[in-house]
Design a protein around this nucleic acid. Structure first.
Length: 215
DNA sequence: AAGCGATCCAACCGCTCTTAA
DNA sequence: TTTAAGAGCGGTTGGATCGCT
């Protein structure tokens, strides 16, 4: 690994069972947040950022582990086509999966499966470098399509959100009249129309069509 | 069994955004 | 309005494991 964190003050590398236990116990008692205070309060020799990442990507009870299902793959591929490398947004629509998981899965499996060339998203709206190059906050609202078909920018993030949410609502309206058909190992207490609607991909395709028509 | 390259994925970094004082 | 701290994001790295020779 690289860089400034290796100053001897904080441990790096894989987390031990004991460290996991300490962090889990702390979050159970105090809740999430104030990550930078956790090392002081618990004695963990990890930086706050590392604690947050470990909780979000591994220890949080909502995190699903194991292989990705066909449905998840399909959903990720479609969302990536719409959103590009907006991993957190994509992960937000894939229940139980974190942005890191989705990103890794895309880079190691799906991009190969689709034959997508690895290339950087030059106008990725959340990319620190690109937003700097494009000059600040407005860069989030100007989009254009990439060679690989993904959208980099043109509509604002909120609008993209709206398209996804609209689609979600339509799926919900329709499917709530039916008995849910759970695909794969859906979570207890979690029901996501994207995963459960029989025709969910048609809805998503339709919403994508509407999205493109409006551009 | 040993060596070695390929693959996977957890973890880190640098940066921006958000929020509270 | 400014500023500092906290939170979050995407890109990248490197250690562990796998599979082939």
């Amino acid at each position: 690994m690289k860089g400034a964190a290796g100053n001897g003050e904080h441990r790096r590398g894989l987390w031990t069972v004991e460290e996991d236990r300490i962090l889990t116990d702390h979050v159970k008692v105090h809740g999430k947040g104030k990550w930078n205070r956790i090392p002081k309060l618990t004695g963990l020799k990890r930086c706050g950022k590392s604690c947050r990442l470990r909780w979000m990507n591994y220890l949080s009870p909502g995190v699903k582990r194991g292989v990705f299902s066909e449905e998840e793959d399909d959903l990720i591929i479609r969302l990536h086509k719409l959103l590009g490398n907006r991993w957190s947004l994509i992960a937000g629509r894939v229940p139980g999966r974190t942005d890191n998981q989705v990103k890794n899965h895309w880079n190691t499996h799906l991009s190969k499966k689709l034959g997508v060339k690895q290339r950087k998203c030059k106008i990725n709206a959340s990319s620190s470098k690109s937003s700097k190059e494009l000059g600040g906050a407005n860069s989030r609202t100007e989009l254009k399509s990439n060679d690989d078909g993904s959208i980099s920018c043109r509509k604002g993030e909120a609008e993209i959100h709206n398209v996804i949410e609209d689609s979600s609502e339509k799926v919900w309206e329709t499917t709530s009249l039916q008995d849910p058909v759970l695909i794969g190992d859906c979570y207890d207490n979690f029901w996501d129309p994207y995963l459960c609607a029989p025709n969910l991909m048609e809805f998503l395709d339709h919403s994508l069509d509407l999205f493109w028509d409006g551009m």
